Computed example of a mutant assay.
Amino acid sequence: MIHNDDLNDPLGENHVGTSAQNPLRSDAFDKTDEEKIALIKKDVESILVTLGMDLTDDSLKGTPNRVAKMFVKEIFGGLHPNKKPNSSTFENHYKYGEMLVEKNITIYSTCEHHLLPIVGRAHVAYISSGTVVGLSKMNRLVDYFAKRPQVQERLTMQIVQELQKVLKTEDVACVIDAKHLCVNSRGIRDIESSTVTAEFGGKFKEEKTRREFLDYIKLDTTF
């Protein structure tokens, strides 16, 4: 059945992003975290009351505050540029000239169309042009860009673009394989499907280099 609301929101129902950057208002950071939590708490209370929930119940009375804190401090914490991890770089003294691959980076993000979880893994690689970055910084950058309302295509591109800037090289690649609960738990309710996105820069656009990266991803690295 097609609902009227679906017809009025074709982009959201088809999980299409409309911007290469997260769509933020110019006043997005005018309020403090505490002010945002207080406002969101009231909004969550209103939603639950509208749904008919009894907020005097022990199980529910703290929910509005918990949800508000979770939104601001945790799952959407990556919206604020002050939360971006410091990506310290180092000179490649050991002259390592092959690609470096950090695979199976856990992703927890949120679909910006339905505010439901996106859960999956990212595989990131780069070829040094003279600069290297600490391994954990790659994981932290992925987590930073994931902690916001997102679309997977944008997330993939943001990871690559940020590492290109940090490492001063175009030779960066990222593949993400993730499940979207807006597909798995509602709508079509397909619990088996996942979404794969990829962004290849510089040498990774070449078939040989891209194939090498994809072969590394397939390696069984269970320890």
Results as ranks from 00 to 15, higher is better:
Leu24Arg: 12
Leu24Asn: 08
Leu24Ile: 09
Arg25Lys: 13
Arg25Thr: 15
Arg25Asn: 13
Ser26Lys: 15
Ser26Val: 12
Ser26Phe: 11
Ser26Asn: 13
Asp27Cys: 09
Asp27Gln: 09
Ala28Asp: 06
Ala28His: 05
Ala28Phe: 08
Phe29Ala: 02
Phe29Val: 01
Phe29Asp: 01
Phe29Tyr: 06
Asp30Gly: 14
Lys31Leu: 13
Thr32Gly: 07
Asp33Trp: 03
Asp33Val: 02
Glu34Ser: 11
Glu34Val: 08
Glu34Lys: 10
Glu35Gln: 11
Glu35Trp: 01
Glu35Val: 01
Lys36His: 03
Lys36Tyr: 04
Lys36Thr: 00
Ile37Ala: 00
Ile37Asn: 00
Ala38Arg: 09
Leu39His: 05
Leu39Ile: 10
Leu39Tyr: 03
Leu39Asp: 11
Leu39Gly: 02
Ile40Asn: 01
Lys41Ala: 09
Lys41Pro: 02
Lys42Arg: 12
Lys42Phe: 02
Lys42Ala: 10
Asp43Pro: 01
Val44Tyr: 03
Val44Asn: 03
Val44Asp: 04
Glu45Met: 09
Glu45Leu: 06
Ser46Met: 12
Ser46Arg: 15
Ser46Tyr: 14
Ile47Ala: 12
Ile47His: 09
Ile47Val: 15
Leu48Ile: 05
Leu48Arg: 05
Val49Ile: 14
Val49Asn: 10
Val49Thr: 13
Val49Tyr: 07
Thr50Ala: 12
Thr50Leu: 10
Gly52Asn: 03
Met53Cys: 13
Met53Asn: 13
Met53Val: 09
Asp54Ser: 02
Asp54Val: 02
Asp54Trp: 03
Asp54Lys: 02
Leu55Arg: 00
Leu55Phe: 00
Leu55Glu: 01
Leu55Asn: 00
Leu55Ser: 00
Thr56Ile: 00
Thr56Asn: 06
Thr56Pro: 00
Asp57Glu: 11
Asp57Ser: 11
Asp57Gly: 06
Asp57Cys: 06
Asp58Tyr: 11
Asp58His: 12
Asp58Pro: 12
Asp58Ser: 13
Ser59Trp: 11
Leu60Ser: 02
Leu60Cys: 01
Lys61Leu: 08
Lys61Met: 08
Lys61Asp: 08
Gly62Asn: 10
Gly62Cys: 02
Gly62Ala: 04
Thr63Asp: 00
Thr63Met: 00
Pro64Ile: 07
Asn65Thr: 15
Asn65Met: 14
Arg66Lys: 13
Arg66Val: 07
Arg66Leu: 09
Arg66Phe: 07
Arg66Met: 10
Val67Trp: 02
Val67His: 01
Val67Lys: 02
Ala68Lys: 04
Ala68His: 04
Lys69Leu: 06
Lys69Ile: 08
Met70Ala: 12
Met70Gly: 10
Met70Pro: 02
Phe71Trp: 15
Phe71His: 10
Val72His: 06
Val72Tyr: 05
Val72Lys: 05
Val72Ser: 04
Val72Thr: 03
Lys73Met: 11
Lys73Trp: 06
Lys73Tyr: 12
Lys73Asp: 14
Glu74Pro: 07
Glu74Ser: 14
Glu74Ile: 10
Glu74Trp: 09
Glu74Val: 12
Glu74Asp: 15
Glu74Tyr: 11
Ile75Met: 13
Ile75Phe: 15
Phe76Leu: 10
Gly77Ile: 01
Gly77Val: 00
Gly78Asp: 02
Leu79Asn: 05
Leu79Gly: 07
Leu79Lys: 07
Leu79Ser: 04
His80Trp: 03
His80Cys: 09
His80Thr: 03
His80Lys: 10
His80Ile: 02
Pro81Glu: 01
Pro81Tyr: 03
Pro81Ser: 04
